[in-house]
Simulated assay, not measured.
Amino acid sequence: MIILPDHLLAIADRKAITPLIFDIATCMNLTCPMYGIDTPQEYAHFLAQACHETDRFRTLREYASGVVYEGRKDLGNTQLGDGKRFKGRGIFQTTGRANYMQLGIKKGDAGFFVRNPEFLEQPQYAVWSACEFWSTRSLNDIANHADTDFLKKKYRGKVIDVSPIEYISLTINGGYNGIDERKKFYARAKRVLSP
């Protein structure tokens, strides 16, 4: 399946193709299939999350300063200034020194994104980092469940029953932030990408 800029526009309910939308679509077509993201169902879930995390494909960098991540050891932010330096970037908003370092390791240089965090704002790395996240958490397996299925997910120390869209949202966001919008984008993506 080929993702067109028009698909992204329709999911985001936007009017004009921007260079960022064009570049994201191009990079998705080059990268997603290498990670097995290649069916309408898989793309619907992937694009719904990307649409929310990028403010409808408007940005590849978190708007907030990142100060709230300062000192967050769970993100590997152990040095002064890490919160701002390693704020969310990419189409899934990779956050924290440890996650930037992990992506660098995947590239063969642990410091690649640590030295140059803004590289994750480039569409090729923005999409690639999301595909890495998706793949390492086996989210295609979740995306291919029926929407009516309930899956077990550990959340805040409890095992809960969630739908596939909720499971994926919790995995990407760590909470229910933007869940209604994610569900709306998912429903649109299913319509837009249906054969």
Rank of each mutant, 00 (worst) to 15 (best):
S135N: 12
G83Y: 13
V162K: 01
F133Q: 05
Q122P: 01
A146E: 15
L151C: 11
Q102M: 10
P123Y: 06
R89H: 11
I142Y: 03
Y100T: 00
N77C: 10
D149G: 07
T148L: 06
W128I: 05
F119K: 15
D82S: 04
K152P: 00
I105V: 15
Q124W: 09
Q93M: 14
D109A: 10
I91W: 05
L103T: 05
G83P: 10
G90Q: 08
K158L: 14
K106P: 03
K84P: 00
K107F: 07
F119I: 10
S138P: 00
G157M: 08
K153Y: 15
I165P: 04
K87V: 13
V114K: 08
R85D: 01
E132I: 11
F86Q: 06
R89F: 08
Q102K: 13
Y167S: 11
G66Y: 07
K84G: 12
F113H: 02
A143T: 04
K153A: 09
R115S: 14
R61W: 00
R85S: 03
S65C: 05
R56G: 01
T95G: 02
T136Y: 05
R56W: 02
K158V: 11
D55S: 14
A143F: 04
V67S: 14
S138Q: 11
A146V: 06
F119L: 15
G96V: 04
P117V: 05
E70W: 10
G96N: 03
R85H: 00
A143E: 07
E70S: 10
